[in-house]
Amino acid sequence: MTFSFLRRSETAIALVLLVAMGLIGLVNPAFWDLANLFSLARSNVIIGIMALGVLSVMISGGIDVSFPAFAVAAMYLTIRAMLAWGWHGVVAPFALAGAIGLALGLVNAFFVSTFGMIPLIVTLGTGALVRGALLGLVGTSQINIDRMPQELIDFGNLTLLSRIGPNGTHFGLSAMILLYLLAALLVHLFLTRTMLGRGVYALGSAPEAALRVGFNRTRVLFTVYGLAGALAGLAGLLHGSMIWLANPRDFVGLELDVIAAVVLGGASIFGGRGSVLGTLLGVFMLVMVANSLIIMHIDTTWQRIVVGGIIIAATTVTSFRDRRQLA
């Protein structure tokens, strides 16, 4: 009983992560520099927040590949609106970005739940549609730092723990990490402590049985796709604030990284399985590998190879696990 945590897949992921950190540290001691660790933590935020939404969708037995498009739409529309109306503030823009993401996510939910359509096809379609509409109807010009709303830049710049580096430069731990951890905690509580959250697992585990015991499929689907959309919207605007740039062509191909991170964190493509803790670890692993490739000056095209390899390796391991338990 006391050692049951050893059998959990999160433990295995954490162990792999520790070994990987040890190896990377051996190859490149600069990995352990505080500045590098802080930058690593900062890189977790955007992918991580998106991953929380994708995790919920995957546990319910679905998949979402539209969220990067939703994220970029929420970011670009919100910032354009702020510029057009001379609008200021932080909370209201984030509320708008979240609402845009939510609304788009509910469109996914509508098609999946009402017509019983395959989530991959629905979200491929809505993603392409939103991206195309954004570029075609709203604009293709990127908004640079000189026009970015100052409040957002200041917000994205908030740091905890400021330090001065050996060469006299300032660095710190981005406060955005707190937002990420807060979102993770809320999604964790939703998934493990609410009946609706357990319904997400039940639906992903055995859809027919979930209906028979009285779970409401429609409600579960609207919740998970809405959540994924809303988190993507928030992450989109946060991303713009952190890099001081709103590029309507951003996030292309990000769905692959996020899904890789979620699968790496032990969630099953077939639904019914996955946890927030695992996803946090999976995101950290993915970001850490990408980060190490950068500090080792490896070409970015090679990073795609690594991400693809990670997806294949992680799904191989999990499908072996699932098959063993089915047998």
Binding site: M195, G214, G272
Partner: peptide
């Protein structure tokens, strides 16, 4: 009890047993 048992394979025994009664009791939290 249907032939397929209507159980949730990826969930624990405890949860499989308790979920329907919790739902019947209209609980929102677990």
């Amino acid at each position: 009890i249907y032939q397929d048992f209507s159980l949730f394979p990826t969930l624990s025994v405890a949860e499989n047993l308790a979920l329907p009664s919790e739902l019947r009791a209209r609980r929102r939290l677990v």
